[in-house]
């Protein structure tokens, strides 16, 4: 059985990764998960300088999911390179670093710093966080803006780049095509869906930020649909995510056209979930006599 996949020339031992922001830099979950088993660790977003993030409450539970408005709190690229990368290097897994910024120059600065770190296999560009007011999502909701920033980052990036797309758009295929045309090596989707919760007893918003990103099983059907649409619109590989709670969900994403998957919010429910998804995919391959996991990609019957 072969679970190996390749994205933009980078090989991964299996298609299971961690969704940015739900797994820290791996350290916090290393007590629960053998990081060596993972296809890749995708880190929490990192900016050129430390970001304090939003006021609390930053998280709220909703039916079948959660809202978050962390606001991309991060220690900045200096501390990240000194502390988090050396930790992750101790493991036999790929490192994908999620990059955030407020301006094109911010992104480029981080991308250039990461270019000097050969242990980082790929960069995931966060142009889809709904919880920061400047930059970020502004680049991810207009096709021409996405095209521009992708092209600019591509000029400076040493590693292949993954553009992480927002679902908060009218037509996901338009965004996918714009990123591909600008030179993106891969896409990841979906980031969270903008949502809101109101506490009716206190007549207050559940989050200090009022709105937050919805994640968890509640968004999975939306994510599967968008991955399917994007996979038919572009040739570059897609990493699928959104509410994966088990191997069955991961396989659904693969069949829809994703070549890899990320486990996100459900890490909070089950800190050992990533390993279970890997084992579950293997059992499925055994059950259906599938030799290569790549045979599952986009293999949903069309008729």
């Amino acid at each position: 059985m072969n679970t190996q996949i390749t994205i933009a020339g980078v090989t991964f031992k299996n298609p299971v990764m961690t969704a940015s922001g739900t797994f820290g830099s791996g350290m916090e979950y290393s007590e629960f998960v053998d990081l060596n088993q993972l296809g890749a660790v995708v880190t929490k977003g990192v900016a050129n300088v430390p970001w304090p993030g939003n006021p609390v409450p930053r998280v709220a539970e909703v039916y079948g999911g959660m809202l978050n408005a962390i606001g991309l709190q991060n220690p900045g690229i200096d501390v990240f390179l000194e502390r988090d990368i050396p930790f992750l290097k101790r493991f036999d897994t790929r490192i994908i670093v999620n990059v955030c910024g407020k301006t094109v120059e911010d992104y480029v600065e981080v991308v250039e710093r990461l270019g000097e770190e050969p242990a980082v296999s790929m960069l995931e560009i966060n142009v889809s966080c709904p919880n920061v007011k400047e930059g970020a999502i502004a680049f991810g909701q207009k096709a021409d803006a996405l095209y521009g920033i992708t092209q600019e980052i591509k000029k400076h990036a040493r590693q292949p780049i993954i553009m992480k797309l927002s679902p908060n758009v009218t037509d996901i295929t338009e965004m996918a095509r714009a990123a591909e045309a600008a030179g993106a090596d891969a896409l990841s989707m979906i980031n969270t869906i903008t949502g809101m919760k109101i506490d009716i007893h206190r007549r207050r918003f559940a989050l200090a930020n009022k709105t937050g990103g919805l994640s968890g099983p509640a968004i999975k059907p939306v994510a599967v649909r968008m991955v399917y649409q994007a996979a038919r619109a572009v040739k570059i590989p897609i990493i699928g995510m959104g509410g994966i709670a088990g191997a069955e969900d991961a396989i659904e994403f693969l069949l829809a056209g994703a070549c890899a998957v990320s486990v996100g919010a459900m890490n909070f429910t089950d800190p050992c979930l990533t390993e279970k998804v890997i084992k579950g995919i293997e059992s499925y391959m055994e059950q259906y006599h599938i030799e290569n996991v790549t045979d599952l990609i986009g293999a949903v019957e069309e008729s």
């Binding site: 916090e28 979950y29 929490k44 430390p50 609390v56 998280v59 962390i70 501390v79 919010a265 890490n267």
Partner: peptide
């Protein structure tokens, strides 16, 4: 106490403002 998601320090949901820059987060949280 604060609303939490992961409970293990990964999600950064449950922060409190600190007087000094915190050694782990590198911000005043």
């Amino acid at each position: 106490e604060e609303h939490m998601a992961c409970g293990v320090g990964a999600c950064l949901g449950c922060v409190v403002k600190t007087a000094q820059v915190h050694h782990h987060t590198n911000v005043n949280n």
